[in-house]
């Protein structure tokens, strides 16, 4: 797995996959896609990066411990559910905000925040597992 071709092409694949994962996550509200599948794509990118350049470089590049990212994901998913407390509705009720940007209307919502939370949870957990398995006998 350490050929020149793979090492040269890996950064390109990784960056494309990361951008694509964000696209898949955001389109997920009304079309196939979503935070779960987006997070899986991003975690696969991290796994490929780890194969090509070694676990240490990946950990340095992410800067944050992947499991902390997962924790942050759960946290903001919970926060997105708590927001409906202020609108007099039950937990997890969606709140929509339509931003009028002149040419187009940008719909923002709490399900989107929830989905980003899911994205981060999946990304964090699967990356942590992948990096631990790629590293030599490391603990998660």
């Amino acid at each position: 797995m350490n050929t020149v071709i793979f090492r040269t092409i890996a950064p390109l694949i990784v960056s494309i996959m990361l951008v694509f994962s964000v696209y898949v996550c955001l389109r997920g509200h009304n079309e196939p896609g979503g935070g779960f599948i987006g997070g899986l794509i991003a975690a696969s990118a991290i796994a490929i990066f780890g194969m090509s350049s070694g676990v240490e470089r990946v950990r340095a590049a992410i800067r944050v411990d992947p499991l902390s990212i997962a924790g942050f994901g759960v946290f903001i998913a919970g926060l997105s559910g708590l927001m409906s407390l202020f609108t007099g509705s039950p937990f997890l009720t969606s709140i929509w905000l339509y931003l009028d940007l002149g040419e187009t209307v940008l719909p923002l919502s709490t399900p989107m925040i929830f989905d980003i939370g899911v994205y981060l949870v999946v990304f964090g957990t699967i990356s942590a597992i992948a990096l631990a398995l790629e590293g030599e006998g490391g603990d998660i």
Partner: peptide, 20 residues
């Protein structure tokens, strides 16, 4: 009725972030 769960889950998440 939901706050105990939310608090437990978000507390677990916060503690995961504060591991170090």
């Amino acid at each position: 009725i939901v706050l105990p769960l939310v608090l437990a889950l978000m507390g677990a998440a916060l503690l995961l972030m504060l591991r170090q």
